[in-house]
Amino acid sequence: MIDKIVETPDEALRDVQDGATIMFGGFVSAGTPSNLILALQRRGTKRITGIANNIGLGDKLDVLCEKRQLAKFIATFAIRASGGRQSMFEELYRRGEVELELVPQGTFVERIRSGGAGLGGVLTRTGLGTMVEDGKQTVSVEGTEYLLEKPLHADFAFIKAWKADRMGNLVYRRAGRNFNPIMATAADIVIAEVEQVVDVEELDPERIGTPGVYVDRVVQCEPVAVRWDA
């Protein structure tokens, strides 16, 4: 019998090694796998390359800065141009202790989609004529210039859903979907934190947001809510 349910977040992370590349789903407070992030902090894994939309904005990822677990981060939003609050990540970044690759959000999700769908990258006009263009190839298609953006793939994806069954089928809730179903396609091992594990007949096949084939481990946790307003 297929059974992807794991008892604890710590057990779900059992083979995460130093130097791993990890995608984290979520957008600010929505759909963020906070329990898996806290388990990663407890595990003390070092030299992580993190891939997430944001860090330091109600996402718990900032805790990975407490003991310098991050070597590099790929994100769309990490450093604020205004405002008084400063995240630990911003502090480390300003001291040159962590590398940051900033990516436009649409390019970010399409690079992950490419990585998960076996594509060689995406062509986009976003970023042309800006710093984002530096060092990248441009391609002309029928007279229009595009930037070539390469796929993103990871060793692990930590994602968050609302409900799951033992086959790994996932149902998302409201704006908790965001990057989770895309990241679920683009990593070698996909670990899903969910609020409820339900019987395998219970989920409506029409409502499955991520089919179980993409998911390796499921762990049920009490959700951790962190509020953050821009």
């Binding site: 957008f27 939309n53 399409e110 998302y172 959700p223 307003d229 821009a230």
Partner: peptide, 30 residues
């Protein structure tokens, strides 16, 4: 925490509202 706008603010939903993933969202935009 799951009903927010892109600024992280809690939002109210009108009739006919929908939720979708980030690839669909940026296909709308791009």
């Amino acid at each position: 925490p799951d009903v927010i706008n892109a600024g992280g603010q809690p939002i109210t939903l009108g009739p006919g509202a929908s939720f979708f993933d980030s690839a669909v969202s940026f296909a709308m935009i791009r």
